[in-house]
Design a protein around this nucleic acid. Structure first.
Length: 473
RNA sequence: GGUCCCUUCGUCUAGUGGCUAGGACGCUAGGUUCUCAUCCUAGUAACAGGGGUUCAAUUCCCCUAGGGACUACCA
């Protein structure tokens, strides 16, 4: 069996769509699973939609996610226009394609008329039967032309897809689609077939939205006399309303997820399980484990809603269990720069079980460096009262004030305070609760002894005094 | 409108003729004797509908309904 070669072929039109990331991942997984090659190709044939820097950005993100491609330099379609033109010319010479001089205005009108008459919008073959002489004259006169594929008549195209099975389409339902645009750049269809052929791609793994184009591609392979690769169409990623996943309904740019503090491991893990399953009940996979377990047979047919809640769960779990080597650096970037590394470590440890994504750290831990004012009523636990709270706070303050700096650790603080409240006939609600509120200004927080340690003696005493003042005022 | 594709809990999914239809997320409740989170336990909830085929259909076939993609000199 010949070598497996897959490719990821994005258009450099901006950010990397999360659905594209999944497509890239599946291509990578299949190639690596079969000791094959994973190649990158840049499809930049639409000059109008080019975004400067997008290509570099794409490559950077792919690399970040560990999806390394095996060609040192990607194939870039815009550098290959001559080749596409020659192949288009060849098809014209063989009477499998033809020059079309119709203006876009005429085409627009045609479409409009057709749809108003409830007909199927389709090219009417206006230029299909121009004589070679007429074409030569028009070309010589400098008239703009595109090259269209001459759709065979009365033929049934039979196709096979690894996920969707056998599909048949009649050529009468297909259009004389454009191969070469009037700016001499190829359309997707032409460039795609030529490049996949020349790159010796064995498996085309791409999103389901391409399935309707498959007959065109099959026909092109036939026209060139080339062997078509194996096709694998992936179910779409969907918005909550089941439409194709789009920008309008939330984040879709991989960059944005990264910026918000989603770990690449979590994103990859989650996205791998959309439209594919390992056939057992395992949910956590590293990239290597995905490679080992990947199989085309376990790809689904139904579109999958991109569920942010489940991504959050994966991400929270990766954060909690510290599964990513780069996690600390990424986490620290959301903390104020003037904090020491030691303090950042402690803060992260304190909150790591409370985060869906790392960016939440900035908000949820903010009381550490920025205590906001709170209502003094909050200091009193629901089962306590003003007097007991005051007592609790005062004896704690006295005790903590005398505690040596080297005893200021979470464990001893917890033991000591527990002893203290027992000795004074108080409850946890009389002591721990008001200390929490005093330190955090919140009624929900990590345990007060942990906060004491993170804050340090000086700052902690200051905040407890402040709380006592509040109660006395 | 046309072509093609799809249909198991709210969501991601397992299931390929006989199961109390399983797991995960979410949600709810309880537990871990200060809150929250984590963690543990339990609960909640699905085979779109109708016909066949069969001793037996979630599973095979047909129809209906619903959803989606595509329908550009964009990819």
């Amino acid at each position: 069996m010949s070598q497996v070669r897959t490719r990821f072929a994005p258009s450099p039109t901006g950010y990397l769509h999360i659905g594209s990331l999944r497509t890239a991942l599946f291509n990578y997984l299949y190639a690596k699973k079969n000791n094959g090659q994973f190649l990158l190709r840049i499809e930049d044939t639409d000059q109008a939609r080019l975004v400067p820097g997008a290509q570099e950005n794409l490559i950077k993100i792919l690399k970040l996610f560990g999806l390394v491609f095996d060609n040192y330099e990607p194939m870039v379609q815009s550098t290959r226009t001559k080749i596409y033109q020659e192949f288009a010319k060849k098809l014209v010479d063989e009477n499998k394609a033809y020059h079309c001089f119709c203006s876009s205005e005429r085409l627009d009108d045609l479409r409009k008329t057709q749809s108003e008459a409830k007909q199927v919008p389709k090219y009417d073959g206006h230029c299909r039967n121009l004589s070679p002489e007429e074409v030569a004259t028009k070309l010589k006169a400098g008239e703009k032309a595109v090259i269209r594929f001459k759709m065979p008549e009365n033929k049934t195209v039979e196709m096979h897809d690894e996920v969707y099975g056998d599909i048949k389409v009649k050529t009468e339902d297909l259009d004389d689609f454009v191969l070469l645009k009037s700016d001499n750049f190829p359309t997707y269809h032409l460039a795609n077939i030529i490049d996949d052929h020349e790159m010796e791609i064995s498996h085309v793994i791409r999103a389901d939205e391409w399935l309707p184009s498959l007959p065109k591609h099959i026909l092109l392979y036939e026209a060139f006399g080339w062997q078509a690769p194996t096709f694998v169409h992936l179910p779409l990623l969907l918005n909550p309303d089941r439409s194709k996943l789009s920008k309008r309904q939330g984040d879709v740019a991989v960059e944005d997820f990264v910026k918000k503090g989603y770990l690449k491991e979590a994103i990859l893990n989650y996205v791998a399980l959309l439209g594919w399953n390992p056939k057992d009940e395992r949910e956590f996979f590293t990239l290597e484990e995905l490679v080992a377990n990947f199989s085309l047979e376990h790809i689904n047919k139904t579109g999958a809603i991109f569920d942010i809640q489940k991504l959050n769960w994966f991400n929270a779990s990766y954060i909690r269990e510290n599964k990513s080597p780069e996690i600390l650096a990424q986490a620290f970037s959301f903390l104020p720069e003037n904090l020491s590394d030691e303090q950042k470590h402690k803060i992260f440890k304190l909150f790591s079980s409370r985060l869906d994504n790392l960016s939440q750290l900035a908000e949820v831990a903010s009381f550490v460096w920025d205590l906001v004012d709170y209502d003094k009523a909050m200091l009193i636990f629901k089962k306590s009262d003003l007097e007991k709270t005051k007592t609790g706070l005062n004896i704690s303050l006295a005790f903590l004030n005398d505690l040596a700096e080297d005893k200021w650790t979470e464990e001893t603080l917890r033991q000591d305070l527990n002893n203290l409240l027992a000795k004074n006939n108080l409850t946890a609600g009389d002591v721990f609760w008001p200390i929490r509120v005093a330190l955090s200004g919140q009624d929900k927080s990590p345990s007060p002894t942990e906060i004491l340690e993170v804050l340090g003696k000086e700052e902690s005493l200051k905040r407890i005094k402040l709380a006592i003042d509040k109660l006395n005022s």
